[in-house]
């Protein structure tokens, strides 16, 4: 019923709000707080493995918030633990990327990182310029859609609850949750008179998939060159999800 859909949307939006690392207003106030030349230099003079470790820690923190977000999506906790993990293993990074668009300033192509806004040059010592450029391009494209916080919340839930992910035990059950979230997003877009966004959002899903496989590719490259860092210094949760 319509009331059920309203409740579902409200729960997802609440969960999104409560598990966001930063509020939109907070980010807006910091919009022009950029890293200066010395600070950029300090990031650039880090070794490849130092910078990877640093970013792995930041990414893992963001993922932990996504896990909390997932737990409050109606229906998620009814899934088996195996399926919850399967969804998070493939979807948490995608949700982090969707959320990253909230931390992005399109006016100067910077992203909020470590307390200030950073351009691609800050990530130079990761030695994976193509991934960084692709991630920034994705954030730019997401921002161009000018989604509301409610739309971002529902879209994030839809990215996560995907019955086509590998290793699911009860695909049917995931499918039912997925349909309800899809219904919720359609409902919100209809209410906002922005139904045309649905098609554009599904296009973003394909880009997310390619970004995540690029991340995995880079991680394999890194692990081969710096096995010790990847094995001993990366956060355990990062290894569980991506290694």
């Amino acid at each position: 019923s319509l009331r059920n859909i309203d409740e579902l949307c409200a729960s997802i939006v609440r969960s999104h709000r409560e598990t966001s690392q930063y509020r939109v207003e907070e980010l807006h106030a910091l919009r022009w707080k950029l890293f200066n030349r010395e600070e950029i230099q300090a990031y650039q003079s880090k070794s490849v493995d130092e910078m990877w470790q640093h970013c792995a820690i930041r990414l893992t923190e963001a993922v932990q918030y996504v896990v909390e977000f997932a737990k409050h999506i109606p229906g998620f906790r009814m899934l088996s633990q195996n399926d919850q993990i399967a969804l998070l293993k493939t979807g948490s990074m995608e949700v982090v990327l969707v959320r990253m668009s909230r931390l992005f300033n399109t006016e100067n192509n910077t992203v909020f990182f470590d307390g200030k806004f950073a351009g691609t040059e800050v990530f130079k010592s990761l030695a994976c310029g193509d991934l960084i450029t692709a991630v920034f391009d994705f954030a730019h494209g997401m921002c161009a859609l000018k989604l509301t916080e409610q739309q971002i919340a529902l879209f994030s839930a839809l990215v996560l609850i995907n019955a086509d992910r590998p290793c699911l035990e009860d695909k049917g059950r995931v499918q039912r949750v997925q349909r309800s979230v899809e219904f919720g997003l359609t409902h919100i877009l209809h209410r906002d008179n922005q139904e045309s966004l649905m098609h554009k959002l599904y296009q973003r899903v394909a880009v997310l998939r390619s970004l995540c496989s690029l991340h995995m590719e880079k991680l394999r490259w890194f692990s081969q060159r710096y096995p010790l860092t990847a094995h001993s210094l990366f956060p355990p949760l990062y290894k569980e999800l991506f290694a």
Partner: peptide, 16 residues
């Protein structure tokens, strides 16, 4: 299960 120990813990944690 051992492979995803931390994820298990995070998911079982009822507080957020």
């Amino acid at each position: 299960k051992e492979k995803h120990k931390i994820l298990h813990q995070l998911l079982q944690n009822s507080t957020s």
